[in-house]
Amino acid sequence: MKKAGLVVIVTHAITANKVLNKPALPTQHAMLEVVGLYCYPIKSCGRVTLTKCDITPMGLVGDRQWMLVDDQGVFLSQRTLPIMGLIDISLNQSNHHLTLNAPDMPTLTVTPEQTTGYMSVIVWKDHVKAEVAETHINDWFSEYLNQPCRLVRFGQTSQRLVDPEFTNGNKQVAFADGFPLLVTHMSTLEQLNQQLQAQNHPHVTMQRFRPNIVVKSDLKPQDEYRWDSIYNQQFKIDLVKPCSRCLVTNLDPKTASKTGNTVLSTLAQRHRLNNKAIFGINGISNQSGAITLGDQLEIHYQNTTEDQLTSK
């Protein structure tokens, strides 16, 4: 008989989810440590590594406030343009100025003030009124990506709601795929790397999954899919939906090159929810506060029901 994790159905506070490989119940006083903080000022471009950041109901301050769109106003991403991931970004956290570098391109500075006019843009199913960057900025991106494009900003008059199925009110998100925050768990990455090693695939880093907050604990892999919220005295993050995964997980973030389909196929087989590959869990903070590397967080668990229990 093959050994594998448990298959269960977990009832979330908001929606019912099927979660594979449910670990055993942890101790009641399990704690998490924040070991990674990242924001991505321009959607699908390079990350900024943080030691401390303000957190708000719209996510980490500065995260995905900018986005690239094509000449039809539709958002661009690494799904079709992997080299977007090679755009290196430095963020000045006090004035939100960006310094950009990309292969064979001059350094570019982008500031919130460098916008002129508005346009309607499309990110997934949402139409958003966004500020448009100045012409010389758009020319820089168009040259690098070898196609016409524009950089747009989520401005003060921009509005985009999180899917109301997963919220108890009118929660906003900027240009992230669907939710303000993504939390990942080191134990689950370690499990994935063991599964990849068994298939002679090199280990992958957490950057394959573009998280905002990375936590570590003594808990078992995939325990995060049973967390209802994580919190400390500064803030509380409601964890509302496991994050489904796409072909970007097959890209090496250092080179933007494809590394086969092993990562995504392993997620689809061993980290699966409703027939979709998952890794990490989306969240929304209900308060504003500061988050810092080394912070200790407590866990509030979901109420769970075990309707099905099998080994695989």
Rank of each mutant, 00 (worst) to 15 (best):
I299C: 05
E131V: 05
N92Q: 08
L293A: 03
F209E: 09
T15W: 08
F75A: 11
G178E: 03
H29L: 12
V162S: 10
M1R: 08
T99Q: 13
A16Q: 14
V121R: 01
D54E: 15
L161E: 10
S94E: 03
F141W: 04
T266A: 03
T188N: 08
I230E: 06
Q234P: 02
N170C: 05
R208W: 01
V214N: 02
Y144D: 07
V19W: 07
I87D: 00
A16C: 01
Q207A: 09
V48C: 15
G5H: 06
F279C: 07
N92P: 00
Q191N: 02
S265R: 11
A176N: 14
R245T: 07
R79F: 01
P57L: 11
L267R: 09
N146E: 15
E306Y: 04
A174S: 12
T305P: 00
R160F: 02
P253E: 03
S77E: 11
R208Q: 14
S77M: 07
Q72K: 15
I281W: 00
G85V: 03
M58S: 06
R210G: 09
S158N: 08
T310E: 10
P148Q: 00
K18Q: 11
Y225D: 14
Q93E: 10
T27A: 05
S285W: 02
D104F: 07
T56G: 07
T99R: 14
S44D: 10
L161R: 05
L247P: 01
M67D: 02
V173C: 13
T259Q: 13
D238E: 05
Q197K: 15
I299K: 00
L6A: 11
E33C: 03
Q72C: 14
I281N: 01
L76I: 12
N17P: 01
V128E: 06
Y118K: 15
Q159P: 00
C45M: 12
L60N: 12
F209C: 08
D139E: 11
S90I: 02
S94Q: 04
D139Y: 04
W66H: 14
P202W: 09
Q147R: 08
I213T: 04
T116H: 12
S265I: 02
C246Q: 12
S244Y: 04
D295K: 05
Y40H: 13
S120P: 01
V214A: 14
A176E: 12
V19H: 13
T15Y: 14
A16N: 08
L6I: 13
Q72N: 15
Q156V: 14
P242W: 06
A133H: 13
T266D: 03
K312A: 01
K129H: 08
L309R: 13
P57S: 09
G73V: 07
L68A: 08
S217H: 09
H203Q: 10
Q197V: 04
V132T: 12
V10Y: 08
E306V: 09
